[in-house]
């Protein structure tokens, strides 16, 4: 199997997760697609140096999340989009209205969180244990627990404020 074929096979298993990660950090569908491509590109670039001793999912999450925050910070300085030749890239179908509204709803909650908290929540929503979250994010297990408690309290406070309003 060629390196490219092996890479595609690996990515096929985690594509859904990559898409969700990209969607969590962007507002517009075209930005989401842009970011998704960027994550794939960076994964492809680092695929050769990827060491098998690290869990594959850890590597993928790490690259996806790192690229996302980098994209978010740098995106203002770069032109938002540059038209790509259609033969270079086939565009994915945009999400339907119902899906878009579900995303908007989730993003409204997530937007109140900092980038660090957003990363932790993403992994929590993906059913990762505190230990795994710590390994990907670069924090100790107990620190993740503390931060997760703060995030829950923050979200709860927001609901209370909304109800009062």
């Amino acid at each position: 199997m060629t390196q490219e074929a092996a890479f595609i096979q690996t990515i096929q298993q985690y594509r859904g997760i990559l898409y969700k990660a990209a969607a969590l950090y962007t507002d517009r569908p075209e930005d989401r697609e842009d970011l998704m491509q960027e994550i794939l590109y960076q994964l492809w670039k680092s695929y050769g140096s990827f060491r098998q001793e690290a869990a594959r999912s850890t590597w993928i999450y790490r690259v996806a999340m790192n690229v996302s925050i980098h994209y978010l910070k740098q995106n203002r300085k770069r032109p938002r989009t540059v038209a790509l030749a259609p033969e270079l890239l086939e565009r994915a179908a945009p999400p339907d209205e119902a899906e878009q509204s579900r995303w908007d709803n989730i993003r409204r909650q997530i937007d109140t969180l900092s980038l660090l908290e957003r990363g932790i929540v993403l992994l929590y929503l993906e059913d990762k244990s505190y230990r795994e979250i710590g390994a990907i994010v670069g924090l100790s297990e107990s620190n993740v627990g503390t931060r997760m408690a703060r995030i829950k309290a923050k979200l709860k406070k927001r609901i209370t404020e909304k109800k009062q309003a």
Binding site: W44, R91, A93, P95, I106, Y124
Partner: peptide, 24 residues
């Protein structure tokens, strides 16, 4: 939305939208 509500909404999202043609 609490974290549990967020989790439910998250799990309800489809995970497959990217084009098959996105070759590296």
């Amino acid at each position: 939305m609490s974290i549990e509500g967020l989790k439910q909404a998250w799990d309800a999202l489809p995970g497959e939208t990217a084009s098959e043609a996105l070759r590296p």
